[in-house]
């Protein structure tokens, strides 16, 4: 969808839906929201709904960063400790590398 062609109240509605949806453990919605509405929130000439959109975008950005931090930390820990965790790690894995402990 091209935001240029969407009316301002529609934009706010959309941005709010993505923002709220992110709370359902869907960090990608926040991430998409932050990228998609970034220009709208910070670089477009002012309009009525922009303040609200900006709030949602900032919160989405914060949420995304926290999520990225959490995921990166987990992946790092898992990759480093997978071999040590033995059976527990195997049961968490979909694909286990061949020929590695």
């Amino acid at each position: 969808m091209d935001l240029k062609r969407v009316k301002n109240d529609e934009k706010l509605n959309l941005c709010r839906k993505y923002y709220l949806g992110g709370f359902a453990l869907l960090p990608f919605l926040w991430f998409v929201n932050s990228v998609w509405f970034f220009q709208e929130a910070f670089f477009k000439p002012q309009y009525e709904e922009q303040r609200q959109i900006r709030t949602y975008v900032i919160r989405s950005i914060i949420g995304s960063i926290i999520w990225i931090g959490v995921i990166v930390t987990w992946v790092t820990i898992f990759q480093l400790k997978r071999a040590d965790w033995g059976a527990t790690a195997d049961y968490m894995s979909m694909v286990i590398p061949k020929g590695e402990a």
Binding site: A83, G86, A87, D90, I96, K98, G99, E100, A101
Partner: peptide, 12 residues
């Protein structure tokens, strides 16, 4: 393809 010990590779 296997590694570590029998317990591990059989479990996998």
């Amino acid at each position: 393809d296997g590694a570590k010990d029998s317990e591990t590779c059989i479990r996998r």
